[in-house]
Nucleic acid binder design. Structure first.
Length: 277
DNA sequence: ACACGCTCCTGAACGC
DNA sequence: TGCGTTCAGGAGCGTG
């Protein structure tokens, strides 16, 4: 499922092709995903040119003249650019935008989302910064604001387990289940530890590993599961080497003891009992 | 303010 | 083979 690195990768991929593209037509084939899809998409997007494409938390912001598309890939969303030649709308293709690229070529931008946890909505430029979807977002892990002291503050007096804490998007954005598991493993911190129990040294280590894990995944092109594709539609797995995620019962790459799986906050957690204290 | 559990959705994987 | 059940999970929301 798309986590921050995947969304970043998708944004970069889309930006490469679509900056300067003009909307010929836009059509929605579902009334809602996680929230309602605006009606009359076509009249709102037609003839507008794409100015920039950026990521905010796990949201994709496609900025056009006078309007901004806010998209979220949820669990199973894919945003792909497809050729006109032999194009046919597939199952779960919920949004299809016909675009004329800067160079003149025509392409479709398609949002496919089988599990429909995604979002596709619109905002004006003036409303974007106070948009409801963004009102409770925590710190961006790549921002200057995300210092180890900021993480220390988040963890202080927090009784909740550290894994749930770093995954809480009202505190820190973009750390999903996979990278929470991975960064805790690399930090040697047990996922069930109360956030407030972490020492300063551990906070510093975790802070560093969260950033590095996400950076590494972006460098690898984002990690993925099997129902995910890159922006250009090329499917398949990325090359990120998971140390614990999905490795239940397999030997730890560091100490050889069995990777364990537990359920925390209704989510699977994978960890090494020996490496993570 | 915080912690926690429920919910949305579909397809894959699994059990009988 | 085929049906039913379980699981995956981001994040908003309601409850205590």
């Amino acid at each position: 499922m798309p986590e921050l690195p995947e969304v970043e990768t998708v944004c970069r991929g889309l930006a490469q092709s679509l900056i300067g593209a003009k909307v010929i037509s836009a059509e929605a084939y579902a009334p809602k995903l996680r929230i309602e899809i605006p009606q009359n998409l076509n009249s709102k997007l037609k003839n507008k040119t794409i100015k920039s494409i950026n990521r905010k938390a796990k949201y994709i912001l496609i900025e056009l003249e006078e309007i901004i598309i806010i998209a979220h890939l949820g669990m199973s969303g894919r945003m792909t650019i497809q050729d006109h030649e032999n194009f046919s709308r597939k199952k779960h293709d919920h949004i299809v935008i016909d675009l004329k690229l800067k160079a003149g070529e025509k392409k479709y931008l398609v949002l496919n989302d089988p599990r429909r946890f995604g979002i596709f909505t619109l905002s004006s430029h003036e409303d974007i910064n106070k948009h409801k979807l963004f009102s409770k977002l925590g710190i961006e892990p790549f921002s200057e604001e995300f210092t180890w002291q900021a993480l220390e503050k988040i963890c202080s007096k927090r009784t909740k387990n550290i894994k749930g804490t770093i995954m809480d998007s009202s505190l820190i954005v973009g750390v999903g289940n996979i990278y929470a598991c991975e960064s805790l493993f690399k930090s040697g911190i047990h996922p069930e530890r109360p956030a407030e129990s972490l020492s300063k040294k551990e906070i510093k280590k975790l802070h560093k590993e969260i950033i590095e894990t996400l950076e590494e995944a972006i460098a690898a092109g984002g990690s993925t599961l099997k129902d995910y594709s890159k922006a250009n539609g090329e499917s398949g797995y990325f090359q990120f080497n998971f140390k614990v995620y999905g490795k239940e019962s397999q030997p730890c790459q560091v100490c050889n003891s069995k990777i364990l799986r537990i359920v925390q906050n209704n989510r699977s957690t994978f960890y090494c009992k020996k490496c993570q204290k």
